[in-house]
Design a protein around this nucleic acid. Sequence first.
DNA 1: ACAAAAGTGTTGCTGGTACACCCATGA
DNA 2: TCATGGGTGTACCAGCAACACTTTTGT
Lengths: 240, 240
Amino acid sequence: MTKYQKQTRLLAAVDCIIFGFDGQKLNLLVIQRAFEPEINNWSLMGGFIQTDESADEAAVRVLKKLTGLEGVYLEQLYTFADPLRDPVERTISIAYFALIDSNLYKKQLTDEYHAEWFPLEEIPDLIFDHKKMVLMAKENLRYKAALHPILFELLPPMFTIPLLQSLFEEVYETTFDKGNFSRKVISTGLLIKQKEKDKVNSKKGAFYYKLDKKHYKKNFNKFLHFIRNPEGISKTNTSL
Amino acid sequence: MTKYQKQTRLLAAVDCIIFGFDGQKLNLLVIQRAFEPEINNWSLMGGFIQTDESADEAAVRVLKKLTGLEGVYLEQLYTFADPLRDPVERTISIAYFALIDSNLYKKQLTDEYHAEWFPLEEIPDLIFDHKKMVLMAKENLRYKAALHPILFELLPPMFTIPLLQSLFEEVYETTFDKGNFSRKVISTGLLIKQKEKDKVNSKKGAFYYKLDKKHYKKNFNKFLHFIRNPEGISKTNTSL
DNA sequence: ACAAAAGTGTTGCTGGTACACCCATGA
DNA sequence: TCATGGGTGTACCAGCAACACTTTTGT
């Protein structure tokens, strides 16, 4: 079979917007770009899609290369295809967003990328259109987390309800009533109570919970409307 | 500036999943492919991204080429990048989904593409991974329409509430109480009542309404949770 | 007059919010 | 024993589902 004639070939890359929660703040993992142009400037972790690899596979590879982690929550976000977005040559970028427990990455030692966590409000200038990608990812995180139990992906396997609450409060920049929050989250049936308590953050101690993996997938959509009227969220609304 | 070395260049295309409502059924617009491979087989309308064009621009161009329509609701859906998805040569496809009042397209005469509307339950075999794209678009339509007022894009500028209800019932494959439906849709503040009635479908006649364009954008997110517990909807949940 | 579809009234229930209160424990 | 954060009890209220009812008009 012959090739398609007279069409432009171009580069395709993936870029990963990696969110992490350290128990206090929501952070973004960025690296210092290792090659020209914009060498040493802050950038999302990314890479070109290889010949025999799908975009998903490329994103998994890139994420693992940076963090060493596998089995991470990773979702295709949006494809950026402005003809001028990369000054070197035309490159379209398929952006992915990832959620990890940022404590896991701290342990990575071999940091050939000069990676660094930045709190969401203090993100430095990023190359190309990466800032736009981060903004969209942030919106998408709020949007999706109001409807689906994805924020658990940012927590360690065992966590307390007050910790979960502080994560929600961080993401939605608001506060929730602790009593109602606790009841609501337990009523989802997604959590399994543990015997142990966390005594670090209070005298009484708060019980640890684990995610019920079975119910997790089943209730992924039943979680809908967990946050009722999130402010400032919006799904990209493109009427062209 | 030199180019990025030793990377694979590949083709990038857009494909449009075009939904239309004719007052009765929800339909999909497909064409007969005009070139090899798979010539004459059913396919989504698509096209390669040109040198100076973004993906959005390509989608708008492709949609206009087929339907003659501009200003249509069009949204990037997902990017399909499996290395083997096109047997001729590696091509990634950025899928867009579009919503139109299918009566508008009926009037198009110059049909050089042999386009045809198919009811959603009777879609023929499609080339490559186009069936997968349609499935995802269908899910996304249900998902998004439960949260945002996008189904109006499928209706003519003036429509009755019973017509809107039959559209929702078609999309969610269920029925709603007419009284509650009517109150709920009016309470969104998105509709402007007209003086005229549609007398075709009932003796009493049903008032026409128009969309309030100003409130539309403002309430795009306030519409959230319009359908409370839609069955069978799901946002792609990719934990890789 | 009757049938048929549009649209209104009404009631009971669900579930969410606010907030008072009790509980366990370290200092 | 007191301060602190974890967790429970409860009363009120909005909004929704169910369904009976009224309205309009062509035949």
